[in-house]
Design a protein around this nucleic acid. Structure first.
Length: 733
DNA sequence: CGTCTCCAGGTTTTT
DNA sequence: CCTGGAGACG
């Protein structure tokens, strides 16, 4: 924090080298100033990694490297936003519209929106009907949409969905698409024709799944060296954060972009060639996404593919106390296969790591809430100083309840996204269909929402016609409509019922009119509001939730929030293009609620460990540290290296803490799938996480359980706190 | 044919 | 608890 103030105060546009050297230690300075050539930074937890990256970018800008030549890739939206924010802080007043800081997926979308039409058609058997090509207005399918399409593909192949784990099938498809498995080698060929049907569906609907966002740019580059050349020329300075989490395809994309060629350069061909300016930053101990294809062996590959790599190790931890760091090292040292690294801290001593065990999850949550109150008053901490980390999303609920009950302001990030709520999905489906009428999955979601009397049979009939013509539903509707008009209003195609015909026509008219409206000029939020009125979504909610007016209101409120969010986005000066497509681009990749940055300030942070990566908090609680949760039983089923990954996860959780770490578990927990010893329905006896035993015992302190006296004490302290505030004394730093 | 109601089931982590 | 699917009802 102090460093930023220093920079801001010392002439932001001309940061002299001296500024950096005051702010940074030796290796950090080296990492920030080595702008040319390939650089590999092994950055231990809390070693100032993000700072190094942001300073590098600031330095590039200062050196006159144009914004559009800089590309910084991250893994989560949150990390991308955070990085952008910090660069902005370092370059105040400077618009950064041409600087690309994004996730790999968002970057893929960017490329595809521009150039997907250069992609050749799919491989076809001779004589097969011509398959549709992707267009620029493609839809992006999230997990839910993808599951819908898989279901449809199963139906199409006359395979019953019974006994099929759709989730697993989706994973299998993903593994195949990204080249992690091949049919017959790990991937059960039984599902191959369903996969092909699924792929076919995506093409017909002009839709891409998340994997396509990485796979198709690669394909595009392989087929069109000219297109690759364009991007290669533009992005002359590339940085990748959390490199240990890159998957193989992400790595390939990076390599292509950096070298400008589809194939890796052979060592012999490298002599004399300018080695690209690529800087990757990672920490193998924090690799926690291998289940998603992350492969920290990329670190080794990088050294091979980019000869002359400058390797820098950042080993000084600025974040945590020695106690916390030793606890973390105690845990992680149980992993084999690590890149050698000794993390040390200048912050000696520190409070012991606390561990407490409660009887039930409710009590655990309550004692965390109580502890937060107490520490806030005793130690003068702000709400924002606390982070509560859990292994799974489902563990957050009880904790949220306790925080709510204790009037503790909090924000969650990592919960299911706002954009996954049904009412929001409905509305976004309208926008998607308007943008891309070929998008069947979204069209089917709204064709009868709000109810307009288009039922199952009508839909089945149209789907069949569509299928016969190798077209989407929308195209089938157009064709039917056309045919009917030319047959003088006589057609059996729309079904016997006049009413149904009218409903379908009305639906088409709605989409068409919205299409010309939405793609025209004017404020998107205003147009969305009109759409909501036009479809009378409010009446729909009222009738759907007749007995539950509160739900209806709540859902409508969410719609309002969405419109408000669109408006805010429109007004944001960093939004270049505020059209429909730009909005959908942005929104389609948000799968998680990252919590509002601004609104979240000054609140307790509740999130999954995965979501906490890259963050730090003065006080960290790790809740639900039980066997079966961390390490997670489902993860262990995956076998082999999974225990090590779970350990890394625990390591990441520990190293989020600056001064104080508190770990908790409970003796009994409600579980959906009860274990072997279940004393009551759905309740399992649980043991503390085996990882706790890996923390050197002298660093651990067993917390006493909370009792009422202490609660009273907390209340007394609250009184003191209020008095302090009354007298104008600051309560927190 | 479309809608309503009841019942079972249930996601480890994210794009 | 909430969602989604199956079956009954209008």
């Amino acid at each position: 924090m102090r460093s930023q103030r220093f920079l801001l105060g010392s002439g932001p546009l001309f940061m002299a080298k001296a500024d950096f050297s005051v702010e940074l230690n030796g290796p950090q300075l080296e990492a920030v100033t080595a702008l040319e050539g390939p650089v590999l930074i092994i950055a231990g937890a809390g070693s100032g990694k993000t700072r190094v990256i942001t300073y590098r970018i600031a330095r590039m800008l200062e050196r006159g490297i144009p914004q559009q030549a800089i590309l910084a890739l991250t893994f989560t939206n949150k990390a991308a936003h955070e990085m952008e924010r910090r660069v902005r802080e370092l370059s105040p007043g400077k618009p950064l519209r041409n600087l690309t800081v994004s996730t790999f997926h968002a970057f893929g979308v960017r490329i595809l929106r521009e150039d997907i039409e250069a992609l050749g058609g799919p491989e076809q058997d001779p004589g097969e009907a011509v398959r549709p090509r992707y267009r620029k207005n493609f839809s992006i399918y999230d997990e839910t949409d993808r599951t819908e399409l898989i279901k449809e593909s199963l139906r199409e192949c006359r395979v019953s969905t019974e006994g099929v784990d759709l989730y697993k099938l989706g994973q299998l498809f993903s593994d195949v698409k990204t080249g992690r498995l091949r049919w017959g080698e790990g991937a059960n060929s039984e599902f191959r024709h369903i996969y092909e049907e699924y792929q076919y569906g995506l093409q017909v609907y002009n839709a891409l799944d998340f994997d396509d966002l990485l796979v198709l740019p690669i394909k595009l580059f392989e087929e069109n060296p000219g297109v690759l050349e364009k991007y290669h020329r533009r992005y002359r300075y590339i940085m990748v954060d959390e490199f240990q989490d890159t998957s193989l395809i992400q790595y390939r994309l990076l390599r292509m972009l950096a070298w400008g060629t589809a194939e890796p350069k052979q060592a012999s061909a490298l002599a004399g060639a300018a080695v690209p300016n690529v800087c990757v930053v990672g920490d193998d101990d924090q690799s926690i996404y291998s289940w998603r294809g992350a492969n920290y062996e990329n670190l080794l590959m990088f050294e091979q593919d980019f000869p002359g790599v400058l390797e820098i190790k950042l080993e000084q931890n600025y974040r945590s106390t020695t106690t916390i760091l030793e606890a973390a090292n105690g845990v992680i040292s149980n992993n084999s296969n690590r890149k050698e690294k000794t993390l040390w801290s200048g912050n000696s001593g520190g409070k012991p790591v606390e561990f407490f065990q409660s009887d039930t999850e409710r009590e655990e949550a309550e004692s965390i809430a109580g502890n937060i109150h107490r520490m806030r008053f005793r130690e003068g901490r702000a709400w924002g100083d606390f982070g509560i980390l859990v292994r799974t999303n489902s563990l957050m609920e009880t904790i949220e309840e306790a925080l709510l009950a204790e009037n503790i302001p909090y924000r969650v990030s990592g919960g299911t996204s706002f954009f996954q709520r049904k009412e929001i999905k409905d509305l976004l489906s309208y926008l998607r269909v308007v943008a891309n009428p070929r998008d069947d999955v979204n069209l089917l979601r709204i064709i009868n929402t709000p109810r307009r009397g288009i039922g199952k049979t009508a839909i089945t009939r149209i789907s069949e016609t569509a299928r016969k013509n190798h077209s989407s539903i929308w195209e089938a509707l157009e064709r039917l409509n056309y045919a009917r008009r030319h047959a003088g209003g006589q057609s059996s195609l729309f079904g016997a019922e006049d009413q149904e015909k009218n409903e379908l026509e009305a639906f088409m008219a709605l989409i068409e009119s919205q299409r010309s409206l939405m793609l025209g000029s004017g404020s998107l939020s205003a147009k969305v509001r009109d759409l909501v009125d036009k479809i009378d979504y409010w009446s729909y909610l009222v009738s759907e939730f007749r007995k539950n007016e509160k739900t209806a209101k709540w859902k409508y409120l969410n719609i309002e929030r969405l419109i408000q969010a669109i408006q805010d986005w429109e007004k944001d000066e960093d939004t270049g293009d505020s059209g429909l497509y730009a909005y959908l681009n942005r929104v389609s990749l948000i799968t998680r609620d990252d919590g509002d940055d601004e609104a979240g300030k000054g609140k307790v942070n509740l999130m999954t460990i995965h979501a906490a990566k890259g963050l730090e908090f003065p006080v960290v609680f790790i809740a639900g540290a039980e066997e079966g949760i961390i390490p997670h039983e489902r993860s262990l089923e995956a076998g082999e290296g999974s225990i090590e990954e779970e350990r890394r996860l625990f390591y990441v959780a520990i190293t989020r803490a600056r001064d104080k770490l508190s770990i908790s578990s409970c003796r009994r927990r409600k579980r959906f799938r009860p274990g072997q010893n279940a004393p009551a329905e759905g309740i399992t006896e649980t043991a503390p996480s085996p990882f706790l035993a890996e923390i050197p015992p002298h660093l651990l302190e067993y917390g006493k359980e909370e009792n009422d006296d202490e609660l009273e004490e907390a209340e007394a302290l609250e009184l003191t706190g209020r008095m302090m505030r009354t007298f104008g004394l600051t309560e927190s730093s």
